[in-house]
Design a protein around this nucleic acid. Sequence first.
DNA 1: TTGGCAATCTGTAACGTTTCAGTATATTGA
DNA 2: TCAATATACTGAAACGTTACAGATTGCCAA
Lengths: 348, 348
Amino acid sequence: MDRRITKKGDDDASGKERPTLKTLAFMTGLGVTTVSRALKDAPEIGAETRRRVQLVAKQIGYRPNRAGVRLRTGKTNVISLVLNTEHELMSFVSDIIYGVTEVIADTPYHLIVTPYSRSQDPLDPVRYLVETGSADGVIISRTQPNDPRARYMLERGIPFATHGRTDMGLVHPYHDFDNYAFAAEAVRYLAGRGRNRLALVTPPVGLTYHGHTVAGFADALSEVGASEVPFNTVSIDQSIEQIRMRTAQLMRRKDRPDGFVSSAAAATLAIVAGIEDAGLKLGRDVDVVSKQSSELLHLFRRELLVVNENFRLAGSELARAVLGWIGGADPGTLQSLSTPSEVLPYRG
Amino acid sequence: MDRRITKKGDDDASGKERPTLKTLAFMTGLGVTTVSRALKDAPEIGAETRRRVQLVAKQIGYRPNRAGVRLRTGKTNVISLVLNTEHELMSFVSDIIYGVTEVIADTPYHLIVTPYSRSQDPLDPVRYLVETGSADGVIISRTQPNDPRARYMLERGIPFATHGRTDMGLVHPYHDFDNYAFAAEAVRYLAGRGRNRLALVTPPVGLTYHGHTVAGFADALSEVGASEVPFNTVSIDQSIEQIRMRTAQLMRRKDRPDGFVSSAAAATLAIVAGIEDAGLKLGRDVDVVSKQSSELLHLFRRELLVVNENFRLAGSELARAVLGWIGGADPGTLQSLSTPSEVLPYRG
DNA sequence: TTGGCAATCTGTAACGTTTCAGTATATTGA
DNA sequence: TCAATATACTGAAACGTTACAGATTGCCAA
């Protein structure tokens, strides 16, 4: 046995170091190239050799070195989730992350979270990712009808999926919740309870689902013959205090609404607080239909009427979509729309 | 101008490709080595050369290739946040992520989220990270007094920080909320309101802060001469329905508590629901002091008494701690404890 | 027998970076 | 003047992987 002190032996396959292709090559007596190809089931490798290599690889727990692969091929095995650090709903963040990780769990992919803040152009983080080649695929939220990020990534040919749809005549993977249906159903439900002066707490202006929600609300209003009490000064991006104050103001007017449709649970808490600040009672003076992503609103007030939106599902669908695109699928087939549950009153 | 068709010119520094050290070397007329050293302010590079290289690098927007660095040096520039996909509080996830990203924003670090589920050994994801060398630093939560993950990483010499303390006589960076103080203050406050039969809704059994909370609760009880109503069947890891049901059961007994201390906001919602299920009224029949991480509990019931825990701060502190350790600081100096706010009643 | 060809396998180069071991030039001391 | 030394720079090798362009073998048709 020759022992090398300073230099790491060319042919060492011993001890503690993480195994590489070279280790495998030495152990099997094959060339590095052959091992590499055998591991990825290349056709020009003999069936027995392939099995042998794969067996040894499994035995010693070989895992390809990510840096090596990435340097050579450009493939990062990374999916990036781009998040706004000020405006995302907090349940959104955790659920969507879990949804994504669920899907990529048995793939070589890692999930990196790329944040951006209010002050930044939302395009910044995306540009960074693309320019530095930091990810094979990107997931973005807060999608706009004419979304520069989607356009940018489409131009550069980097796979992505959007939470929410765009409206630019360009085709790309997305997952969306049917907010049109949500708003429309909410209105119909309220009308069914005799409410006919309705206010809408909208999603952030500028995002695509704002438009969907407003349209669903408006269409159903005219369908059931109810009328809208304008409440445009409020959207779910605002602070709890703002929403609460504005709601209280609104509810003290005599032309106040007798029903609300709210696009987010946190806003709903504020709405209810505002209603009660004005001395009115939920369920008697006014009904509120709200979206929620966790089952907490009914604990808050049983009189609330809720519709569930599943962000974990959204995360999974988005991850599946990006992976699909990376895998070469047609982007047009990687689009999904999630149908709202019916409006649910408190059940015993 | 010679144009090479198939091969990429050895000396090309033209068009669209991302600039590398080679590009910079060509542009400055220096060797690749010199450029590399000049960019990292090595002493043996002439002052003018250094400035020149750095200027050009900035001009053309050079960014080191992560794969190249990682392959050569083993440095990943990645921090991994290890999360349990079933039991983490949802506000915890989003806030801690934002806290971490805030700190690493102007560093070369990326944040990757490494999940593990109920069925898995919590050591699994950590072992994976260490074995594959996927991160320079790790942040873990749900810390236990004798935590195999901390021990493992300490043995392997990989920098990490824990959310919550361990109790193994080993020193490592952590950030923790002073749950002993929280529980004790809560008890004192309740006693001040004349409540003297108190129940504790504990953190998950087995985690370090369970012990801290229980101890703070017990010590303050004897200090103020109040007594504990055992409620050991419930912890904040359980489902909303479970907690609610158990609470209702408890509150129907005649030896029921007149005060609760709750370690998490979601559990508190269930506690209150259970109290009301039993026909009792918050603030009259019973008081509840609860930790919360977002300011929502007072919207839920004004009678609630809250103490704020800032997870975003925790995320920042943890990130700072890991980066500090990576940077060579003494782990013993990278520990922080966050003091609870006082108990806050609803303020107008 | 020979040429051709399929089936398997292999060495070399390259991705972008840093480190090692220099080299070239100027400067110093005697 | 010469050697020693400091200063400023450089090429080659290596990290682990994959793609390219062969190389070797055996078999079969002619």
